[in-house]
Design a protein around this nucleic acid. Sequence first.
RNA 1: GCAGGGGUAGCAAAGCCCGGUCAAAUGCACGGGACUUAAGAUCCCGCGGCUUAGUGCCUUCGAAGGUUCAAAUCCUUCCCCCUGCACCA
Length: 908
Amino acid sequence: MDASAIEKKWSTRWADARAFEADPDPKREKRYVTAAFPYPNSPQHIGHARTYTTADIYARYLRLKGYNVLFPMGFHVTGTPILAMAKRIAAKDPDVLGVFDKIYGIPPSQAAKLTEPRALVAHFSAEIEQGMREIGYSIDWRRKFYSYDEKFNRFIQWQFRKLKELGYLVKGEYPIAWCPSDKNAVSAHDTRGDVDPDLDNVTVIKFAVSAGESLVVTTYRPETVYGVTNIWLNPKASYVRAKHGKETLILAEEAAKALDLQLGLAITGKIKAEDVLKMGAKNPMTGETVPVWPASFVQPGVGTGIVMSVPAHAPLDYLALRDLGKEGMRMPQVVSLKGYGAAPAKEAVERLGVKSQDDPKAEEATEEIYTKEAHEGIMHAGEFKGEHVSTAREKIAAKMAKGGSAFPIVTISNGPVQCRCGATVVVNILKDQWFIDYGIPGWKDKAKECLSGMKIIPEKTRSEYLYTIDWLKTRPCTRAAGLGTKFPFDETKMIEALSDSTIYMAYYTIAHLLADVDVAKLDDKFFDYVLLGKGKGDARMKTLRDSFLYWYPVDSRHSAGDLIRNHLTLFIFIHAAILEKRLWPRQIATNGFVLMDGAKMSKSMGNILPLRKAIREYGADIIRFSVVSGAELSTDTDFNRTVADGVRSRLALISRLVDESRKKGPAQHGRIEKWLLSRLNRKIGLADQLYEKLAIRDLSLQIFYDVVSDLQWYAKRSKGGANLHDFFTKWVVLMAPFMPHYAEEYWELLGGKGLVSFAPFPAPDESKVDDTIERGEELIRRVHGDIEKISALIKKKPARVTVYAASEWKRKLYSMAKANPSFEALMKAAAAEKMPMKDVQNVAKQIMKNVHSLALPLSQDEELGALKDAEAFLSAEYSCPVEVLPEEKAKHDKAKSSLPDKPAIVLE
RNA sequence: GCAGGGGUAGCAAAGCCCGGUCAAAUGCACGGGACUUAAGAUCCCGCGGCUUAGUGCCUUCGAAGGUUCAAAUCCUUCCCCCUGCACCA
């Protein structure tokens, strides 16, 4: 049977048997496994499959261990990307349609139907669910929900009322990137070229030109105000006077419009650039009046559209002066910088050979000077002389602000950014922004307590959680638009996407039981009872409460490592805030990404491999195995054809052997079968521990790659003789979490009862673990390889091979060496035993090489037993007679060189 | 800058916590051989250098020092790379 037939057969069986629909069973211990639910704005690719496969492997492992396991799945549709994408499809955006067509395989005709957000959600969620079914995730699909479902909304609103009661919700001002035309918050997916607007705090300094009227400049470096020689503005831009409170500010028209939302400016009239150029502006710190000059580098849309000139420390300012032919003027030094003179900007410009203010190299010079001065600069002028620039900067800004000659604004540092609608994105200050205040000390302590009680996989990421817990402060929890849940205290706003997905795992435990409960009943009393045990509930509510208490807490939460900084830490915070301690999560496991042929998958590279396509091409089990087995959990892993092909060809060998084992008669249990079973039973106990630790890479090496290479050796050694039924009935269960479809198929072929998905995890049979057999087999392998090597070295095929196992007295020397760990001592002891001293010397020399870690060898009889067992095999391998003899029966001088664990080999 | 994670043979990647069995697992790539009419698949051997009937020696695990009988592994200093620094799913 081919892979896809097997996969189809078993996924159908699982579905028909409702195998993974888990219900509370007080008689059985439970385990609750969840993975971050997907955001359905695209099909999932093999990278997504890594997290889910890891979670599924763990869930399947726990089932083998006898637990009642719940692994549910839902869809996160909260937020704006889906809205933005729907809009772009409606606008026939060629980029989006191109990605749909080329990467997702959705032709434009079909894409045209996806202009409604809900249609998009329906399409991609169905696609993702289908993929998850095809790859064999053991999900209880009854519990599926979407984060915009009405009942889920009720649950989330309850959550927020709890947070409010606890005093964790606060209201305040907040700067955001904003489209003045759409009147909406803007993030990367709303902008042309998917630019993420970066907000930055900058200082505006007022240079008075007359009473109550100032030119306003923007700067990142207020400390350089002491070195201003002039003011720059762009002669081609238009300027305005604008009322700001009682004062009048002069700034670029474009800037005034952008800053209006932030500052509340009233434009009172235009003013020509040439008129501003005639003004003199008074430096608020030095009292000096400086001229206003033209410069092309000044962008009217950035900041106030006017800048101050500090030629000693700003390459662009120096260049603009030079362009005007004024490079000879005085350039006051403000900052001293090691390795530079009084005018570092000038030095950098000259060294880099920057031609003019319009030369792209100017940026390089700016980068150099700004970074160095910020980190290493010492104030050279002003009242903070001698202080580090890094600390003086804030003090100077604060001092000017206090004196009324400066104020902070927020700008878009990577601007200008265009909204998709065409408007330039500006900064808006939201006055009534709601936040969750993760900075509350008592709450932080609880979060840390929760973390310290949790198993974190990999353990080395724990510090990242701790760091994030400490670092989180107030975090906005609402947005103006998006799908999801309305904010209960201001229904014009939507709850933000990360804030509505922190305790949704609790919702899965009751989701399917809410089907015939009226939405209106899902009030605070309802959730208080079901989730907190407060108040009274009817019989139905009691069932829900029981279900919740049965499944909670979450035993293992899975996601990619990038969510530690946000989702996973919020998950800890909100659980710690709302639920009792016994219901706090027990474990988090995070994984790295999947690379495609060594490169990061991205839409722009076009190297995204959609999951369903990958399944069609390689098969579900091969994909499952390939995306998790290549690297340790925490590091990125590479997916490429050779990996998948390698898994496939190994699987083919196993399929063949399973098939043979089914047909053949009873097991022979010769030496080689015993060896295989010994190896396997040794691995079982180890595998159990590795599963528990989610050491998936190690597991895959141990129970797949190693086992395959054992089987390869077995196949050679046994010459296709025996029956591996006993071996496979154990191994198939071990492997079932990784490759559930093939495992079921093998299980059935081997006559296993029921589904292997629910078979008991094999118990290691210690009586089958046999060191002597394993070491004997290693010896055979080594002898086999050595014959090959010698034969190649002497460039001759042997006509006859004799193998001599070393005498017993040589072995005795090994144990004697333990007590006499030096050459002299050993020789002495051997002399006392009346050993043949000439030969002893040679052996003792060998022993002394690694006397610190000496393993005792097999006995001569044991070696002979193993080697004689392989006589026929070796003889067939080299098509010549092979004889195994004890050293004592030597017919050849070389036999003397035999050592324990290293028989002498004579080729003739 | 701050925080975290890394630098190992052609590539990827284990080992490092708990020093010796480490010229260093494993996979891929590569070279040689077996099988085959041939190719592919499969199997065996090799894959730092020199050397040898399966061996032995020398030089390696970012760099430089140190501790130790012994260091990829412990300590010190330095260099380099990656990720995050926020409201975005």
